[in-house]
Computed example of a mutant assay.
Amino acid sequence: MKKITITDVAQHANVSKSTVSQFLNGRYDYMGSNTKKRIEASIKELGFQANFVARSLKMKQTSTIGVIVANILHTFSTQIIRAIEDACNKNNFHIIVCNADDDPGKEKDYINMLRAKQVDGLIIFPTGGNFDLYAEMEKQKFPLVFIDRIVEGLTVDTVLLDNKHAMELAVNHLTERGHERIGIITTSLIRNVTPRVERIAGFVNAMNKNGLAVDNEWVKGLELSVIQKGLANMLSLKNPPTAIIAGNDLSMMEILHYTVKNNINIPDDLALISVDELAFADIFTPSLSNISQPAFEMGKTAAMILLKRILESSEGKTGIIKFEGKLIARNST
């Protein structure tokens, strides 16, 4: 069967090849509606399929970006991905999503794979374990945006939560509810991941501002698999905390598993609040308080920054954009 070409479509629709090309590339703002309808009808009737590889080579652009998340299990990550996809779709870009599992080795492989596929840019939740690779992309002026995490020593556009402010919201809310012994549990601090480190520091700062003592036994950064054990140790202290801040949604899940298994009454025995939203937060009994991140706005912002660097210029000043969280007070506090 003969392969249908742009020439065939143009002849069938009674327009020029350049008009068909403009249609295929989405440049039809000044194209008449009848012309568009004829081209659409001809493409459908002839069964024409555009050669995107050839078009990409000609334009030196694949209209594709890569998104590498550190851990796709985070609700925050999936919300960010959705926002990026929405923004890219409106600008006729596609995305390829990869999950690094907080593993620098996997992240490195994905970066190399996506660049081999000639994506036009990358949005990364950096593990922090591939500094030389990040620095190489920065030196090459490859379009790059970081989300959620700052990598010290690099000047890469970064979008993240104002973690200090988030901790102030959480601590202030708990103190207003009468709590003085407040603890925090988050995931591992081994690689100095920005939100985890900043939330611990913000917690200590907020406690000090409220004139409250910080017991080191009430502050834990643990691997996910041992969070329940760490909570058990914390609650077995002579003076255990009466309220816990979960540093992220995965930490909160582990804390909830422990409280259910051990018949701990929330909030009478232990008040809980988390950073990040849980899908079931408002239907869990009791409903769960949290500091909500504006994930969709953050994802859209990251996408628009990257697209601007791809479509306009990779030059220009980079910056760190911090978004404020919002307290959603429910019944767990």
Rank of each mutant, 00 (worst) to 15 (best):
N216F: 03
A213G: 02
I111Q: 04
T301C: 12
L24G: 09
K326R: 13
R196P: 11
S42W: 01
M252S: 08
S21F: 13
I200A: 00
T194E: 12
G316S: 05
T127W: 05
R196Q: 10
T285I: 14
G319L: 06
N208S: 13
L235N: 04
I190P: 00
I227Y: 00
L222I: 09
H173I: 04
Q49V: 14
K261E: 13
L224Q: 05
G230M: 04
S225P: 01
S251N: 09
N216W: 06
T259D: 01
K60P: 01
A271S: 13
N14C: 02
E315N: 09
M167L: 14
T155S: 10
I291A: 10
K317T: 12
L306E: 00
G153F: 01
V156P: 02
L270R: 03
V156H: 01
V67L: 15
V151Y: 02
F23L: 06
N130A: 11
K322T: 13
A70H: 02
E152L: 08
I96L: 14
A302G: 10
T194D: 10
G230T: 07
A232H: 14
S18D: 07
L237E: 12
D148T: 01
G26C: 11
L114M: 11
V159K: 01
V151A: 05
E176M: 11
R38Q: 13
S287A: 14
Q79M: 11
V20S: 13
L46Q: 05
P240W: 08
N208A: 15
D282S: 14
V159R: 05
P104G: 08
